[in-house]
């Protein structure tokens, strides 16, 4: 498969702490790529660098689109070449980029993202949240909006249609006019994904989409992500701690630890990969391996433990005069 996103030698540091050291991976077009790793491994930092919230110290991030290749790092944080110091346009662009941060250019290039902690516009309705996301797609000229020209009304109607279509697909149609802040948590997470989709991206970056969801909601989410990949021509990059979700839906897994890619490959290959197990569990090999270091925990295989005898339990008696059996959920 052709790569959609190529990340090469991405490095980033906060003061003296190296958050990312030469991170290299590719995201194949039309595939689901998962980034996993223990807490503090630098997963979210990768996202922040990709979407322009952080200026990476070094590295290349390239997005392949039909129109051509876009160098995201250069687009977001332009760097001056020596010959640009006499070019007023380049200087102006630099000054403008320095002021604006340029994250909006990433969205224009076709990358949308969600956040680890839900960031909705809580005092606005669900539909308004989705309309804000389509800011770059609607008619923004002041006079057109105040006079309500035909083009403006058509653009607004189209934006509403798009928003309603996504809501319908995610089963949130009935909540269209509710305030985003008053939705239950699972729906807020879903709304954040819909909002990212409304920016009309080619690459959707999800930062821990299953955090805080119950198993049923996680199931629905994974079905949804698969559907986006299969029917909506989207490429998905996700960070996740829920290994079930990652193993079930992803096509490719990148494992990060201490800001470095320690392994990457198919989910099945990652499950037994020694480096991955070491990062997660602190052991080099899954079972009774000859560990090299002295600090590693002794892992006893479950099968070698003596069986625990079942505790005798008191019999469960329901007094029909006390218990309200009808009221219990099945």
């Amino acid at each position: 498969m052709t790569p959609l996103l190529t990340v090469r030698d991405l490095s980033m540091h906060f003061g003296g702490v190296a958050a990312l050291q030469g991170v290299t991976f590719t995201v194949a077009r039309g595939a689901i790529t998962a980034i996993i790793g223990p807490n503090g491994a630098g997963k979210t930092t990768v996202f922040n660098c990709l979407t322009g919230f952080y200026a990476a110290a070094a590295g290349v991030v390239r997005l392949q689109r039909e129109e051509g290749e876009i160098d995201l790092m250069r687009a977001v944080h332009p760097t001056l070449q020596p010959r640009d110091y006499l070019n007023p346009r380049a200087l102006a662009r630099q000054a403008y980029g320095w002021m604006t941060g340029g994250t909006h250019k990433v969205v224009r290039a076709g990358v949308a993202r969600t956040f680890q902690n839900v960031r909705l516009f809580r005092d606005m309705t669900v539909l308004e949240n989705l309309l804000v996301a389509q800011h770059r797609l609607v008619e923004r000229r002041l006079w057109a909006g105040i006079l309500r020209t035909r083009e403006y009304l058509a653009a607004e109607a189209a934006a509403l249609d798009r928003a309603v279509a996504w809501l319908e697909l995610f089963g949130m149609f009935e909540d269209a006019n509710r305030l985003a802040g008053e939705l239950p948590y699972g729906q807020q997470r879903r709304l954040e994904i819909i909002r990212a989709l409304c920016t009309d991206p080619v690459l959707l970056c999800l930062d821990e989409p299953a955090a805080g969801l119950n198993p049923r909601e996680t199931q629905a989410l994974s079905r949804m992500i698969l559907r986006l990949r299969d029917h909506h021509d989207l490429t998905i990059l996700l960070i996740e701690h829920d290994m079930n979700l990652v193993m079930n839906i992803s096509d490719h897994v990148v494992v990060l630890d201490h800001g470095e890619v320690i392994a990457s490959g198919t989910p099945a290959a990652m499950q037994g990969h020694p480096a991955v197990l070491e990062a997660y569990l602190g052991v080099a090999e899954p079972v009774d391996g000859a560990s090299g270091g002295g600090l590693r925990e002794e892992v006893v295989p479950v099968s070698s433990l003596p069986p625990v005898p079942p505790k005798p339990r008191p019999p469960l008696i329901i007094d029909p005069s006390v218990a309200d059996i009808e009221a219990c959920p099945p």
């Binding site: 919230f53 969205v107 949308a112 960031r119 516009f121 005092d123 770059r136």
Partner: peptide, 21 residues
């Protein structure tokens, strides 16, 4: 759109930036 963007900016600036505003 501009009014909605103003309000979105009031609610969450970072989310705004991630949506291409």
């Amino acid at each position: 759109p501009i009014g909605r963007a103003w309000e979105a900016l009031r609610e969450d600036e970072i989310a705004c930036r991630s949506l291409g505003i």
